[in-house]
Every structure is written in structure tokens, then in C-alpha cells.
């Protein structure tokens, strides 16, 4: 009885604490699932996705080894006067892009190797991009305690969801009048999941 009582409370309080993350992941999954709809909606506005902020002369050798690209990206960030989370990508043999992203704002710095210059562009704010950006935000790949804390929070939320499912099961099993109907729902869910994974 004591365990069951504790389990009910755990299920409840866990759900309440996880609410903002559940709402974020639910809301941000809509533009993921219906990306084309949101893109078409935005295209109708006829506005550019990127707004040029600055151009700076820059000349520094790009490392051949992809493992060194992040250090190069940090140097470009510094040169562009930016600070925070970023990712560096080799766009083409003649261009490296460094993406600087926060929840509310994104900036890209293009290093045009042949032209020896940096082009800094800000992303036009879009709610769907803000949500999908927040959804995909990791943290452990960044070198700051703040981002690593977010990474840890994402891990804890994931573990919380697993615990939430487990505590839900533990609450359902003693409910004798709901055992059979619950079993139907559970079996239907597992069967649908397995079938779809096998078919897709």
C-alpha cells in the first residue's frame, strides 16, 4: 500500500515537473511532422530566410581533418564577434559554414575561402524554426556548463518519461476491473508498433 501510494505520487509529481518539456516536444513535433505545410506558409510571405549583417575580411587555413573543424569554427566565431553554441560544417571545398544558434536567434557565418572573407547572416525569426531548434538542442557537444546542464536536463527528462511509463504500469496492474481492457490497449499499441517498424 505504501509503495502504491508513493508510486501514485511519483507519477503525478513527475508529470507536473515534466509538463514544460512535454509541451515543448509536442508543439515542436507539429512543424517536424508537417514541415512542408509550414514552409509553404512561409514562402507565401516572400521574405528571405537570412538577412546579411556584415562582411569581414578573413584569411586562415581551413584544417583538412574534420576533427579539427570545431576548433576552426571557434576561431571564426571569435572573429565574427559571436559567443555561444555553434556547429561548423564544410559546405563545399571553397566554403565553411559556422552556425551559431540560441533558442531565439540563429546566425550563420560563411567563410568564403577563395574570397578570403566572412559573411555574417541572421536568420529571420520563425516560430516553427524556433520550436524545432529547441527540440533538437543537445548540449554535450558544446563547451559550456550551461549547455551541458541542458544536455543533462534532456537526459533526466528522458529517464523521467521511462519512469513515468513504469509508474503508470504499476498503477494500472492492481486495477482488476481495468486489467483486461488495459491489456487490449497495451497489446494493440505493441502490435502496431512492432508491425510498423517491421513494415517501414
Amino acid at each position: 500500500m505504501v509503495i502504491q501510494h508513493f508510486n501514485r505520487r511519483l507519477h503525478l509529481y513527475l508529470g507536473l515537473a515534466l509538463t514544460p518539456w512535454m509541451l515543448l516536444y509536442a508543439a515542436s513535433s507539429i512543424p517536424f511532422s508537417h514541415g512542408r505545410f509550414f514552409d509553404d506558409l512561409d514562402k507565401a510571405k516572400g521574405q528571405p530566410n537570412w538577412i546579411r549583417r556584415a562582411e569581414l575580411p578573413y584569411d586562415f587555413p581551413v584544417p583538412q581533418d574534420d576533427a579539427q573543424l570545431r576548433a576552426f569554427g571557434a576561431r571564426v566565431m571569435h572573429a565574427a564577434g559571436l559567443d555561444g553554441a555553434f556547429g561548423a560544417y564544410r559546405q563545399s571545398p571553397s566554403q565553411v559554414n559556422v552556425y551559431h544558434h540560441s533558442v531565439w536567434k540563429s546566425t550563420q557565418v560563411k567563410y568564403l575561402i577563395g574570397e578570403k572573407k566572412l559573411v555574417v547572416e541572421d536568420a529571420r525569426f520563425r516560430w516553427d524554426h524556433m520550436l524545432t531548434g529547441f527540440h533538437t538542442k543537445g548540449g554535450f557537444e558544446q563547451e559550456s556548463w550551461l549547455h551541458e546542464s541542458w544536455g543533462l536536463a534532456v537526459d533526466l527528462v528522458s529517464l523521467g518519461l521511462i519512469l513515468w511509463v513504469a509508474s503508470g504500469f504499476y498503477m494500472w496492474i492492481p486495477m482488476r476491473n481495468l486489467r483486461r481492457s488495459g491489456l487490449y490497449a497495451l497489446t494493440a499499441g505493441i502490435a502496431s508498433f512492432v508491425l510498423l517498424v517491421w513494415l517501414l
Binding site: S158, V165, G168, F169, L178, A185, A188
Partner: peptide
């Protein structure tokens, strides 16, 4: 309850894959 039981495999998949 029933929505939770039906969608339990998806919740677990999304949670584990996120980690």
C-alpha cells in the same frame, strides 16, 4: 490510462532514442 498504455512503446522509443 488507455492512451498511455497504447502509446507506451512510442514513449519508451522516444525517451530511449533521445538518450
Amino acid at each position: 490510462l488507455y492512451a498511455g498504455l497504447f502509446l507506451a512503446p512510442w514513449v519508451l522509443m522516444y525517451a530511449i532514442s533521445t538518450i
